[in-house]
Simulated scan of single mutants.
Amino acid sequence: MSSSQKFGPHLRLIGMAILWGASWPAGRVIAQNMPPLAAASLRFLLAATVLLPWMYWAGGFAGLRAWNRRRWLGMAVAGAAGVFGYAAFFLMGLKQVPAGKAALLITLNPVVTLALAVWIFGERINRTIAAGMAVAAAGAVVVISRGRPLEILQGAVGPGEILILGCVACWVAYTLLGRWVMTGVDALSATAVTSTMGALMLLSASLLVEGPAGLAGAMHGNLQAWTALLFLAFGATALAYAWYFDGVKALGAGAASGYITLVPVLGVLFSALLLGESIDASMVIGGAMAVLGTTLMNWGRRPAA
């Protein structure tokens, strides 16, 4: 095996983590300069100009003929949760919450997903995974409460944090829906179809809520905002997904998902470097707990020798 074959998938997965980490400060820039629904719709419409041709060249269009009404309806629901809902909460939340803090809150994704999978599907977990879930959840609480967890009981969670938690809820719904509606569908086709459906939903919502002025405002955004938007569309969406699919194919889903642990750390670092955001003690402690927890969860999933 050549060195490129051996290390190539790992390098691409590191690239994926870098792109997804950088998506948080990019989203913050967009949220401060563009109407959120219009910007989100443009992001996924632009991404679709890459994903749909890629799907066509991969032969995915032929499989669409076999999809029944239930499959199409399931894809629409998945697109509503994983693209429309997530993207809307993402930019609306980043309008109010620093990008680094938001990136750390997303570490709740695997924790909540697995907890619901245990409850709904009866999925089994071991003590290592359970310990990882507890540590990651505790870390997220530290970040949300700015190091004062008891204040959460007194309602001291801001609207921005609630919107980012909406991202978590949408992504968890998208992941769990996948067990029902995406069985037998390749990852590229699922991503291309749900992204396109979600983009159309976002465009419709933008026109209804923000009006034509919202889309016009996004189109006339400044150079910094458009640079961030193009990065999200082609870098953090199309290219990052391509590298992630390649990593899953070469190394397996478990190994590839381990690289996602790097995303919140990189999100905090890029937000500090690019936007000058401060990193307080609660973010360091809570972030370390969250990353340690997700690492334990991934470790617990490793098959026994």
Rank of each mutant, 00 (worst) to 15 (best):
R179Q: 10
G254Q: 14
S145M: 08
L229A: 08
L207C: 01
A233S: 13
L202M: 05
D246F: 11
L202N: 00
W226M: 14
P264I: 01
I162Q: 11
A199K: 03
G166L: 06
T191E: 00
G235T: 02
W171P: 07
F245H: 09
R146V: 02
W226A: 12
G258H: 01
L203S: 13
R148A: 15
A242C: 10
G160N: 00
M219Y: 07
L200P: 02
L230N: 04
A236R: 06
A228P: 05
G158H: 12
T175P: 00
W243P: 14
Y174A: 12
A228R: 00
G247S: 13
F234C: 11
V172A: 10
V157K: 03
A187Y: 07
A253Y: 04
D246K: 08
A253I: 14
S204E: 09
R146H: 15
G235F: 09
A256M: 13
G184Q: 08
L200N: 02
L176V: 07
F231M: 05
G214H: 09
L150Y: 09
W226V: 07
N222D: 15
L262Y: 08
A218R: 14
S145C: 08
P149N: 07
M197R: 00
G235E: 03
L215W: 12
L188W: 06
L208W: 14
G198D: 01
D246G: 06
A216M: 13
I164D: 02
V209K: 05
V185I: 15
L176R: 11
A213W: 11
G211D: 01
A187D: 15
G258E: 05
C170W: 14
G166V: 01
L215F: 15
Q224T: 13
T261L: 12
L203D: 10
G147E: 03
G214M: 09
G178N: 13
A173W: 03
A256S: 11
G211S: 03
P149I: 07
M197S: 04
G158C: 04
L215D: 11
G166H: 10
G254Y: 03
A218G: 15
G221Q: 06
